[in-house]
Simulated assay, not measured.
Amino acid sequence: MAAEITQTTINPPSIIIDGVSKRFLKRNTHSFKEAFTSWIKGKKVRADTFTALDDISFQVGEGESVAIMGLNGSGKSTTLKLVSGVLEPDQGRVYTRGRVAGLIEVGAGFHPDLSGRENVYLNAAILGMTKKETDERFDEIVAFSEIGEHIDQEVKHYSSGMFMRLAFSVAIHVELDVLLVDEVLSVGDAPFRAKCSAKIKELTERGVTMLVVSHSANMVKDLCKRGIVIKQGKLIFDGPVDEAVELLQAK
Score class of each variant (00 low, 15 high):
Ala3Ile: 02
Thr8Gln: 14
Ile10Leu: 11
Pro12Gly: 06
Ile17Phe: 05
Gly19Met: 05
Lys22Gln: 01
Arg27Ala: 09
Arg27Lys: 11
His30Glu: 11
Ala35Pro: 03
Trp39Gln: 12
Lys43Tyr: 03
Lys44Glu: 12
Ser57Lys: 05
Phe58Ile: 03
Gln59Leu: 10
Gln59Tyr: 00
Val60Pro: 04
Val60Asp: 02
Gly61Pro: 05
Val66Met: 10
Gly70Leu: 05
Asn72Leu: 05
Lys76Tyr: 12
Thr79Glu: 01
Leu82Pro: 06
Leu82Ile: 07
Ser84Gly: 11
Gly85Lys: 00
Val86Tyr: 01
Val86Met: 11
Pro89Ser: 02
Gln91Lys: 13
Gly92Val: 05
Gly92His: 03
Gly92Ile: 03
Arg93Tyr: 03
Thr96Ser: 11
Arg97Ala: 10
Gly98His: 10
Val100Thr: 15
Val100Glu: 05
Leu103His: 02
Gly107Asn: 11
Gly107Val: 07
Ala108Thr: 11
Ala108Pro: 04
Gly109Val: 11
Phe110Ser: 07
Pro112His: 06
Arg117Gln: 14
Glu118Met: 09
Asn119Asp: 13
Asn119Trp: 06
Tyr121His: 09
Tyr121Thr: 06
Leu122Ala: 07
Met129Ala: 05
Thr130Asn: 08
Glu136His: 09
Asp139Val: 00
Glu140Gly: 00
Phe144Ile: 06
Phe144Pro: 01
Ser145Leu: 11
Ser145Asp: 11
Ile147Tyr: 08
Tyr158Ile: 13
Tyr158Met: 05
Ser159Leu: 02
Phe163Lys: 02
Leu166Trp: 10
Ala167Gly: 12
Ser169Leu: 01
Val170Gln: 07
Ala171Arg: 00
Ala171His: 02
Ala171Asp: 01
His173Met: 03
Asp182Arg: 05
Val184Cys: 08
Asp189Gly: 08
Lys195Asp: 08
Ile200Lys: 04
Met210Cys: 15
Ser216Leu: 08
Ala217Trp: 00
Gly227Gln: 09
Lys231Ser: 12
Gln232Gly: 12
Lys234Gly: 03
Lys234Asn: 07
Ile236Glu: 04
Val241Gly: 14
Glu243Asn: 12
Glu246Ser: 15
